[in-house]
Design a protein around this nucleic acid. Structure first.
Lengths: 326, 326
DNA sequence: TTGAAAGCGATACCAT
DNA sequence: ATGGTATCGCTTTCAA
């Protein structure tokens, strides 16, 4: 690796001068500047980011902690975050936490040691206090942690309610809900949204039509199959996320229900694959990519110390009408 | 941030001694050791990884360059790589290149500046020479670059041939191939594998049944639809990857062909969603997770300077039989 | 306008 | 067994 010293020697100046032209600060005569630039060119010199970080206490690196990049919701998020940070000259360290508090804190430690400038994370286990004492800028994505931690999300309850109402408007008389684990706040909110919508209907047994799919495809499939077998009247299902909706669709097929004629299905999230299915999935879509971008903006605001500190960003969701509903 | 100096002061020893207990090298009296550990504890001291990197010329960070993390093939790869590197104390910087040579080289530059210890990449545009002069350990994944660059992949041609033969054995008389872009070597090899298999059949018009799906879902769907409309006799399709197979399935539905009765389909890759579909997709699966792990092992061998230098790792693929074939 | 030198935080060599 | 100090590569203050 060639260093600033090599450049200074070749150009016949001091390292201080080289540093000046590198960072375009301080005075340097046009002539010397050219000499230095020339030397940089010929040596193909690239400044060492580690040395810079050490002095500046800034690494132009952020951490991204997600439960599992293999969950289809996160690649799109990761992509948008990487894109946006890249534009601003930052690099992204990817961490999979499996939603395990231990792992999350482990990563937080490591990231801090590596001098990251901030972290964007998706977690429901981290607590406000432990995060605050961590000391670096953070933004919570998809799962708000508390008042004091900036976050980007959607109004899950309202969106869920709207999704269920959509099924009602499409004529469903008996709507079930495959929910996510209640300890994940957004799953719980979607569950509450379902209740909100159902309260105003004639359907009385709806509390019995709520089953846990644990936000997982296989689980959702299994429990939906049982549910359908035991309840002939069900003609609509609101799945707590798109992955579970996939399971629901398979179960419906296995149970001999035609989608959407016998059974209408609406998912939640709007991940890419929801469109690639057969039939395509109607879903309450979050603007995933934009949310990632927004999280970056909020993080950058904090990192670069601007005062415009938006703390809660709530995005609108929208229904994408496709063929799993009438 | 507390530094080694703070610890040394509190413990009443020199920074050298602290460093010794930190790295467990050199002699240090049990008593002082305890004092130091105590101080580390009370100050919650964590060594600064940046300073360490600067001195050691080692960052315990690697780069991972993939075309696009949103492509379902890569999350599984990214996960396995992050898992494996994490076990060894490394952290992973994620880079999306869009298979664009400019971006790839841009990232390579940045990663080098950040002192990464090595890079794992998926690329068909990088050339052997430019990689060699880059100077740090590299491993090519999924798309071998040349003899001198260590790589992890599968025998795409043979696997493709086997996939097509599987359709033949299942009774298909007229098999089409939706291929990927020919400039991506693995797509081309899969294409050759298709030809290998078809040469021995009675089907003579097979060269007319090869269409480009550009490794993309939407493209594959469109061109497959046209293909099916113009060729009533097609009863089998080998898709160059699973994503295109999804498009094929949709097109088949739209064209009124029943899967697998009228039309059998086999994909390639074995990504997670191939199982979540309806019907489930039969596919020639690569051991994606294991391949990622292997790439890590090979990279670590080079980083840590062991001499056991395996350069070409070729994994076996296997057919996962599901319901898109008879 | 430029250079010398003091850091940034840690490691390891050379003394003692 | 422990401490002083040069070093990693770069930035910035202070002098000249």
């Amino acid at each position: 690796m060639t260093t600033i010293k090599d450049v200074s020697k070749l150009a016949g100046v001091s390292v201080a001068t080289v540093s000046r032209v590198l960072n375009e600060n301080g005075y340097v005569k046009e002539e010397t500047k050219q000499k230095v630039k020339q030397s940089i060119e010929t040596l193909e010199y690239k400044p060492n980011a580690v040395a810079r970080s050490l002095y500046n206490k800034k690494s132009y690196t952020i951490g991204l902690i997600v439960p599992d990049i293999m969950n289809p919701f996160f690649p799109e998020l990761a992509r948008s975050i990487e894109d946006e940070m890249n534009v601003h000259g930052y690099t992204v360290i990817l961490c999979n936490s499996d939603a395990d508090a231990k792992k999350e804190e482990h990563y937080l430690d490591i990231l801090k040691q590596k001098y990251v400038d901030g972290v964007i994370f998706v977690s429901h286990t981290l607590k406000q206090e432990s995060i605050k004492e961590w000391g670096l800028p953070l933004v919570a994505l998809d799962r708000p942690i508390g008042e004091d931690i900036p976050s980007v999300s959607v109004d899950n309850r309202k969106a869920a309610r709207t999704a269920v109402e959509y099924l009602i408007n499409k004529g469903c008389q008996s709507i079930a809900h495959i929910c996510g684990p209640s300890f994940i706040p957004n799953a719980n909110e979607r569950y509450l949204g379902y209740l909100d919508a159902m309260q105003n209907t004639n359907q009385k047994n709806y509390e019995e039509l709520i089953i846990n799919g644990y936000y997982q495809w296989k689980e959702a499939e299994k429990s939906t199959y049982t549910l359908l077998k035991n309840n002939d009247s069900i003609d609509g299902i609101f799945a707590g996320n798109d992955i579970m909706a996939l399971g629901v669709m398979k179960a419906a097929e296995a149970a001999g229900r035609k989608i959407p004629k016998d059974l209408q299905i609406i998912g939640f999230d709007g991940v890419q694959i929801s469109e690639m299915l057969n039939p395509e999935l109607t879903t309450m879509a979050q603007p995933i990519y934009e949310m990632g971008t927004k999280a970056c903006e909020m993080l950058l605001e904090r990192i670069e110390g601007n005062q415009v500190l938006e703390t809660m960003s709530c995005f609108e969701t929208r229904i994408i009408e496709r063929s799993s509903t009438l």
